[in-house]
Design a protein around this nucleic acid. Sequence first.
DNA 1: TCAAAAGTGTTCTTATTACACCCATGG
DNA 2: CCATGGGTGTAATAAGAACACTTTTGA
Lengths: 228, 228
Amino acid sequence: MQPIKPEKKQFENYQMVLSADCVVFGFDAGDLKVLLIQANEIPFVGQWSLVGDLIDPKEDIDEAANRILKDLTGLSKVYLEQVHTFGKIDRHPNDRVVSIAYYALVKIEDCVFDKASQKRNASWHSIKKIKTLAFDHNEILDHCYLQLKNQIQRYPIGLELLPPQFTLTELQALYEAILGEVLDTRNFRKKILSTNLFVDTGLLQKGVAHRPAKLFKINQEKYFKNGG
Amino acid sequence: MQPIKPEKKQFENYQMVLSADCVVFGFDAGDLKVLLIQANEIPFVGQWSLVGDLIDPKEDIDEAANRILKDLTGLSKVYLEQVHTFGKIDRHPNDRVVSIAYYALVKIEDCVFDKASQKRNASWHSIKKIKTLAFDHNEILDHCYLQLKNQIQRYPIGLELLPPQFTLTELQALYEAILGEVLDTRNFRKKILSTNLFVDTGLLQKGVAHRPAKLFKINQEKYFKNGG
DNA sequence: TCAAAAGTGTTCTTATTACACCCATGG
DNA sequence: CCATGGGTGTAATAAGAACACTTTTGA
């Protein structure tokens, strides 16, 4: 075995471009939403697309995804999970760009779009109404959405989409929006409360024309102990 | 919104190198094994490492993983699943190399190592005995092994590691090796047979000094219908 | 006839599903 | 007092876990 001295030129013919694309999920008005912006690359100019950017060679890939989110929403401690890497040869029209897909869970009301994002019409779109996206972003979206569905049934990550205090009805609506099916209220509550990840704040909803719901919050200690 | 005409130079500063690394699982003598070769890159020369190679910019990433396996084992229709992309800045000592990790399931007896692999001592290592690997390959291995454990409990992919005909005891041994725990024989058989993915060939083991076991095979029709 | 692994059912426990009425508030 | 959504328990079913003995072969 002859050790090969690794020199830059060894890699010369293997250079390509990496991007990180994020499916940013939010929840509002009983609807699961995804953050989209308008593409600015030919031939997709003006078409809706996921948010993404090229990864700098000096940058960790997870940090790149975080940077993209921070730039776009102003949020820095966001739930972010790598899902899959998409690398078909012709997925990008002008160059070989391999994309690492992430999904993020954010609270919509905390987002503040920067000017660049505003120019590109950054906005929330109900997942049920999303049509054709730029590039292979429909495929990426489908993959990430499926991953979210699977994860929500194993881990209490749904909390990342809700404000600090929420009612169990809101929580159920969130699960129903993500899973795309209606759940039995009693069974849902039984299961959710049996995890002890949710604690009653003792507070009640106000100003609603019906029996006010109890407000719950995360059991911080238990949530973070389980690596939430 | 001004459309940006994408030109090569736009991407000039974002070039990096992509590799595919494969955790190749095999099963032999009741043991889950992983195919390793000796690294030939400073400072890891001679250390055990996963099999991998750089991805050519003209090559689909999944095809690259398949090519690596084909070159190494001679096998071309291998169960292969992308797991995760590893992109810490310093994971490769001499350049920025981002690695897409795959795991593969192969039948050990079908593998034929080519000369290059032989030179680098391609060989099967019990997963229980694997120590320090080159690069960040321990991390990659752990990730892929965990993924395999999860998948085996949902899908009957274990078959990919067994010869065309096998006994239920062998199948159980495989599950136990992967999961790292002993299973109850009666419950295991009940569950496995209830899937109808396995059919009795009517044949028996020969030449064993005990009651010969029935030989089973895959229910092809059902297996492939479920996207196996 | 012995050693060694193959093969087989039932009971208990736990998790999941299905289902209907009363409660508290604002208007 | 009515409309609206909040909140609660029990019974039935299904899935998973625990457990021990008989069978068939080669040596």
